[in-house]
């Protein structure tokens, strides 16, 4: 039994011996030469489009994150400014001696 299995495994490992080479589709050469010699604009494959879409989504998400952080920072600065201004108003009103 074990010998049979070993024999089978060896046959599997050697199973591509004497096989023929697979041939590419005849239209592939035309596709490649068209891309290299005829076409001015680069044609993107679906895979490249997917990668571009993922990259664009990432950039968009990062931008949204940056804008939201910036606006929350602005709010904080505005509050601080408002507090500061009200403090100055107090001082100014304190110097209005003849009112």
């Amino acid at each position: 039994m074990k010998n049979n299995q070993e024999k089978w495994v060896n046959e599997v490992v050697e199973s591509m011996k004497g096989s023929q080479r697979a041939k590419p589709a005849p239209e592939l050469l035309g596709k490649i030469t068209h891309q290299l010699f005829d076409q001015k604009a680069k044609v993107l494959s679906i895979r490249q489009w997917r990668i571009i879409a993922i990259a664009a989504t990432l950039i968009l998400a990062l931008n949204i994150l940056a804008i939201s952080q910036l606006s929350s920072n602005n709010k904080a600065v505005n509050t601080q400014m408002a507090e500061k201004n009200s403090g100055q108003q107090d001082i100014i009103s304190n110097y209005k001696l003849y009112e």
């Binding site: 046959e11 199973s15 096989s19």
Partner: peptide, 9 residues
């Protein structure tokens, strides 16, 4: 004759 074996390989 090697089709199945090549598949496994």
């Amino acid at each position: 004759e090697n089709k199945e074996k090549a598949k496994a390989l």
